[in-house]
């Protein structure tokens, strides 16, 4: 059961009794696992019942973007060599990008879908995010053939760093979710946040060296020095294809920083939820 034997809901700030606040958080986190699994199964069962093409939708975005980038590159005859390697590089990058950007969207999407539940039922809110992350994981598994195809197509591919992949993927998921959590409270109140985030996601993809080789000079280089996604995508892709891991230190720093910010943002969001739910009604 998600409620302790005695529960007090007062007007005073949670900081008066931070121990109790943190205990509530950990209890909810523990209680949310089973519910998260049920919500994940629910979403899974329902998603493709009104769809003919089903799981094909998991493949469409990375394939479509890969095709687009390949066509754009073909416009430049000087870069006609190494087309296969390029396609593999882009496709692998896009699969990892999908993991990252979907985890950014997860908190906002799951909370927006569960608005009525949030306003009417008390349940561990963590379960919504966890169920969303399980879904991102599943989508990743469905896209695994694209990664394998990319690996086979890539000229110098090796499996030497595959042992690092679980950690790399977790970092990608964690940082993405943390960014989503930072945006979550405001997105519950204002509908401007979700479309702005979707638009920003498109720009972000083009700025991040997913489809292009990063430069060491110029504006793009300056931008990407501060772009956590650049480090995350490049490192994870390098881990998969077996190319040199140039930014592993930065990856660890970004992942740890992201997790720290994410946990703080989630605790802040927990404080905000009762205020926000009171305002958005049902």
């Amino acid at each position: 059961m998600n409620l302790a034997p005695e529960q007090r809901y007062g007007s005073e700030s949670v900081w008066r009794d931070p121990k109790c606040f943190l205990a509530d958080f950990f209890r909810d986190l523990g209680n949310s696992r089973e519910l998260a699994w049920q919500l994940f199964l629910r979403n899974l069962k329902s998603r493709y019942r009104q769809s003919i093409t089903g799981y094909i939708w998991a493949f469409v975005p990375p394939l479509a973007w890969t095709g687009l980038f390949a066509i754009l590159r073909l416009q430049d005859p000087s870069r006609a060599d190494g087309q296969t390697g390029y396609i593999a590089h882009v496709m692998v990058g896009l699969v990892f990008w999908q993991v990252f950007i979907e985890s950014v969207q997860i908190p906002m999407r799951t909370f927006s879908e569960a608005r009525s539940m949030l306003a009417k039922l008390k349940f561990p809110r963590e379960s919504l995010v966890l169920a969303g992350l399980l879904d991102v994981g599943l989508q990743f598994l469905i896209r695994l053939p694209l990664l394998i195809a990319g690996w086979l197509l890539f000229p110098e591919a090796s499996a030497s760093a595959w042992w690092l992949l679980p950690g790399l993927l977790l970092g990608l998921l964690a940082v993405g979710t943390c960014i989503g959590i930072v945006l979550l409270p405001l997105s519950l109140l204002y509908q401007d946040v979700a479309p702005a985030a979707a638009l920003a996601g498109g720009f972000w993809l083009l700025l991040t060296p997913v489809a292009h080789v990063p430069t060491s000079t110029g504006l793009m280089s300056a931008i990407n020095q501060w772009n956590p996604a650049a480090v995350l995508i490049e490192t994870t892709r390098a881990g998969w294809l077996g190319t040199p891991l140039l930014h592993i230190g930065a990856f660890v720093a970004v992942a740890l920083g992201g997790v720290l910010i994410g946990v703080i943002a989630w605790l802040a969001a927990r404080i905000a939820f009762p205020h926000l739910i009171a305002r958005f009604g049902s």
Binding site: M1, L3, P5, E6, Q7, R8, Y9, G10, S11, E12, S116, L118, A119, K120, L121, K122, P274, H275, I277, A278, S282
Partner: peptide, 23 residues
Amino acid sequence: IAGLIKPDRGHVTVRGRVGALIE
């Protein structure tokens, strides 16, 4: 009472499991 929203003054104490049929 269900713990969905926070009072601006005062407090609510609930002892035990709550079943809320709000919707």
